[in-house]
Amino acid sequence: MELEELQQVWTELSQEVEKQKKLNHKIIMEMTQQKYRRKFDKITRYETAGTVICILSAGFVLFNFDKLDTFFYQACGIFAIAFLVVLPTSVLLALRKIKAIDLINNPYKDTIVAYTKAKNRLLFLQRIGIFSSFIFFFVTLALTGKIMNDKDVFQETEIWYFIVLVLIGLLFFSRWGYRMYLKITGSAEDLIEDIKP
């Protein structure tokens, strides 16, 4: 195809495209907002999958609650169920809130205030999650031992090697997860900065 032929096809294409205009005000302005929302899409997918696993685990503990025969185990069970239900749900709600911020229709100042509030809440929940996950780990061990084998796992010496390993892994994973949140919220903040009037 010579340039002249390309030109001819391109002109015809331009005419066709002109005939097919389909964007309206709403679609155009939504496009400017989509990019902001997409920043949180990936993390929302991970958190949703995590929430499903947590809810199922809470169901498992609840289903076996009758096996928890002492006050200590019952307290552990209640803590585990509360942790597995409340925290992931709160994180999902916080993510929903941060995604719902209207960058277009709200005044810039309101957007900044709403975003800062939502971001702080999200990061606060993450910090709570990190600290309580260490307690949750010990609670899970105690509950698993009791529910599965009806024994106190902490009496076994080998378990402490496993605990040390998991704690180190948990420490790294928590830092990585928190940094990921910082990165995403930081990059969303840059987007908001871009639309500063």
């Binding site: 195809m1 032929e5 390309l6 096809v9 391109w10 015809e12 294409l13």
Partner: peptide, 8 residues
């Protein structure tokens, strides 16, 4: 037209 478009 589709064929010409694809060639382009």
């Amino acid at each position: 037209f589709e064929e010409r478009l694809q060639a382009m």
